[in-house]
Structures are given as structure tokens and as C-alpha cells.
Design a protein around this nucleic acid. Structure first.
Length: 245
DNA sequence: AGCACA
């Protein structure tokens, strides 16, 4: 047998020509149909290319997503999906808010004198003072080397993209340019005042500016909310974009 | 093929 059930799916055989951010958002857009996606992890480095981890909030969702999407063409390549071998940090953090990911720099010293007197102050390990002039040691792999934008290569081969805005009304609205701190609920408060509102989901993991979705019972009802909230200012310089998908 | 999360 393969791996045992996990709320995280391990996906491989991904087309490694698509840049990481697009890949993650497209995976999110695809898999959110099957449940609540709480994290998407993908890396570019040699060892991890062509693979991604998709964390669902519960096992039933992950399982149905796997069944439904196995073999599906995604950027011209069939998805290969399995349960991940281990639990994702996002999942662990979810079942225990006190969960702290093991630090690579200090790998669990086995000779740890674990006495109860150890102080567990929360403020202790804060990164105070920032890392100003300190250069991060260059990774030995090409992790930080994101030389994308080499698309445009062959003819306009529009792959399985889904996040492209449509001009036809749809029951699912795409919300762009969301500030970092916006969550499902914050976005929900905004949309729920309109008739036919169903739910919202904000993409996990985004740094800088986030993306989310708002679901309505019909495209017609969604269009009312879209007209009202497109260009809405969530925060000082942040005008949200709302479009059909 | 390859199972990570800073």
C-alpha cells in the first residue's frame, strides 16, 4: 500500500515551467472546490521541483480531492496525487495552536537536559532588532533564484489556467489586492451583506498581497456584490479588485 | 523520481 491517509496531499508530476506563485494559486483555485485549503507549499529548488503539498482542513476533503483530481491535466501534465507522508506544519498548528515547527538550525539536541524549570517565555524567541546588515547565507540550491518570466517561449499555449478574470458573470468572484491581514472572515463580513452570499475563502500563504474568492448562489446575485465592492478600499492604499472567474 | 514547511 501507499501512504496512509493524511489531510495533506502530495502532488507531483507538475509542470515545472510555471513559476511558483502562479502554480500555487492555480492549485489553490483548483482544489478549493473540494474543501477548505489551509496551505499550499511548493518550492523551486532542485529536489522539490514539480511537487507541491496541499493542506486541507479535514481528511474527507483531501480524499475526495485526490480521487477527483488524480490524473487531471494541469498545465498539460497529468496530476499525480498521494497522501503526504507526514503532517504539514499548517495542519499541526491547527490542531494545536502552541505547535512550534522544529528549527533546522537547532535540530533537537538529543542530549537535552529537559528539566521542568526551563522557562518557556513567548517573547524570548522573537526576532528582535531584525537582521539588518546580515546577509543570509546563500543556499546551495537555486531556492532563492527565481528567474521566471521566461514564459512567452512557445506559442500562446494557454494552459489550464483558472484565475484569469472573465467578463461573463460567475457565481465565484475573484478578489485581488488584499492586504496580508485579510482573512476569510474579514472578506466574508464584506460580502455577506449582499443577497445570495455563500462563503469566502482567502488563499493561504500569500506574501505581500493576497487573493481570495467569494461564492454566491448565482452569477446574477454575485454581480450585484461585484459592482458594489469592486474598487472597495479595505485599507489606506488598498483598493480591492473584484472580478468574475 | 524526487515528501517540505525558516
Amino acid at each position: 500500500m501507499a501512504t496512509n491517509p493524511n489531510t495533506t496531499l502530495y502532488i507531483n508530476n507538475l509542470n515545472d515551467k510555471v513559476n511558483k506563485e502562479e502554480l500555487k494559486s492555480q492549485l489553490f483555485a483548483l482544489f478549493m472546490t473540494y474543501g477548505r485549503v489551509i496551505d499550499v507549499v511548493a518550492q523551486k529548488g532542485t529536489k522539490m521541483r514539480g511537487q507541491a503539498f496541499l493542506v486541507f482542513s479535514d481528511l474527507a476533503e483531501a480524499t475526495s480531492a485526490m480521487r477527483a483530481c488524480e490524473g487531471m491535466l494541469f498545465y498539460d501534465k497529468p496530476l499525480r496525487i498521494h497522501y503526504a507522508k507526514t503532517k504539514s506544519h499548517a495542519a499541526l498548528r491547527r490542531e494545536d495552536p502552541d505547535f512550534v515547527p522544529p528549527n533546522k538550525a537547532f535540530p533537537q539536541s538529543s542530549s537535552s537536559h529537559v528539566n521542568g524549570t526551563e522557562k518557556r517565555s513567548r517573547e524570548d524567541d522573537d526576532m528582535v532588532g531584525g537582521r539588518t546588515a546580515k546577509r543570509e547565507k546563500a543556499e546551495d540550491d537555486d531556492e532563492e533564484m527565481e528567474m521566471d518570466e521566461d514564459d512567452e517561449g512557445e506559442g500562446s499555449k494557454k494552459a489550464a489556467s483558472a484565475t484569469t478574470a472573465q467578463d461573463r458573470p460567475s457565481a465565484r468572484l475573484l478578489c485581488t489586492n488584499l492586504p496580508q491581514e485579510v482573512t476569510d472572515d474579514v472578506l466574508g463580513v464584506l460580502f455577506q451583506q449582499y443577497k445570495g452570499f455563500a462563503s469566502t475563502q482567502v488563499a493561504p500563504n500569500a506574501t505581500g498581497t493576497k487573493t481570495g474568492y467569494a461564492f454566491f448562489d448565482s452569477p446574477e446575485l454575485a454581480s450585484v456584490a461585484k459592482e458594489a465592492l469592486d474598487g472597495f478600499t479595505l485599507k489606506k492604499g488598498w483598493k480591492m479588485g473584484v472580478s468574475y472567474t
